[in-house]
């Protein structure tokens, strides 16, 4: 899927900076100010989006550390019993989530990209080979994969409206469960 924020946000910034904002009425201070803020906010998003996942993991790890400290030090304070019990439950859930947090999105994206390239090379190479049952099976596998992938990609972009309101695309959330 090419339309991801790392591709979209710079295009939005450039359009606003080069075309839209210069055309905003200089006398309309509210529009001028909000236009500048939209650009600044998009810059902030573009800069921080790649780190968002790492940031959230780090934050969870730090809070788990603080929760452990509170549990340890607070154990001697009888009045904290109920609160610390609730904290322990949430901290346990947090540790479980953190243990499942895997590679960063950028690494996942790069791995997908590399695998796509290798798959593409294998398909092109197989096309050079003589026709036979293996080639037919490879073609069928590519077609089956395309069907599933394209349903997901079209559902992801359904809001753009290319296929009209009656395209019958499922909600993308139902297609990316696991």
């Amino acid at each position: 899927m090419e339309l991801r924020p790392s591709f979209q946000i710079p295009a939005l910034i450039k359009s606003l900076t080069d075309v839209v904002l210069p055309a905003v009425d200089p006398a309309n201070k509210l529009a001028q100010e909000q236009g500048q803020l939209v650009v600044a906010m998009l810059h902030l998003m573009a800069q921080r989006l790649p780190l968002q996942y790492r940031y959230d993991c780090h934050e969870l790890k730090q809070f788990l550390g603080l929760a452990d400290s509170l549990a340890s030090h607070g154990a001697a304070v009888p009045e904290l019993g109920e609160t610390l019990a609730a904290l322990a439950t949430d901290a346990e859930a947090g540790r479980a989530v953190l243990s499942r947090a895997g590679v960063e999105p950028a690494e996942l994206e790069a791995t997908n990209l590399a695998l796509r390239t290798s798959v593409g090379a294998a398909i092109s190479a197989s096309a050079m080979a003589a026709d036979g049952p293996a080639t037919k099976a490879i073609n069928a596998a590519v077609m089956a994969h395309a069907q599933e992938m394209l349903l997901r990609e079209r559902a992801w972009l359904a809001m753009q409206g290319w296929e009209g309101p009656n395209a019958g695309l499922p909600a993308v959330e139902t297609l990316i469960g696991g």
Binding site: M1, N112, R116, V119, I123, A127, V142, M143, H145, A146
Partner: peptide, 17 residues
């Protein structure tokens, strides 16, 4: 192209054949 697309590879092979 950025992402390779298997269907595009398959299609070009068919077009050439």
């Amino acid at each position: 192209s950025h992402e390779d697309v298997p269907l595009m590879r398959l299609t070009m092979a068919w077009l050439r054949r």
